[in-house]
């Protein structure tokens, strides 16, 4: 479970070009990490690729923070 979290944080760091140290569970991609809506689309697609899942738009809309992503992935994996 913590493994999912660390992989999520790594992807977020890579996709949004921020340091891992700047990211915590509550980090909002848009409000805290400077992403725009198109960055979030790319981020969701990076999650899909990393975890080999398909995240539909309806679900993707609710993934706004690191925790959201971790919880969602834990649920479907």
């Amino acid at each position: 479970m913590d493994k999912i979290k660390s992989r999520v944080i790594e992807i977020v760091a890579e996709e949004l070009a921020v340091d891992v140290d700047e990211i915590n569970e509550d980090s909002s991609f848009i409000d805290d990490l400077g992403a725009d809506s198109l960055d979030v689309v790319e981020l969701v697609m990076a999650f899909e690729e990393e975890f080999d899942v398909e995240i539909p738009d309806e679900d993707a809309e609710d993934i706004r923070t690191v925790d959201d992503a971790v919880n969602y992935l834990e649920d479907i994996l």
Binding site: L38, V41, E42, M45, E54, D57
Partner: peptide, 13 residues
């Protein structure tokens, strides 16, 4: 669409 990622998602739909 304004980006490659969104274009790919749209194709998937």
């Amino acid at each position: 669409v304004p980006s490659v990622a969104l274009a790919r998602r749209m194709e998937r739909l």
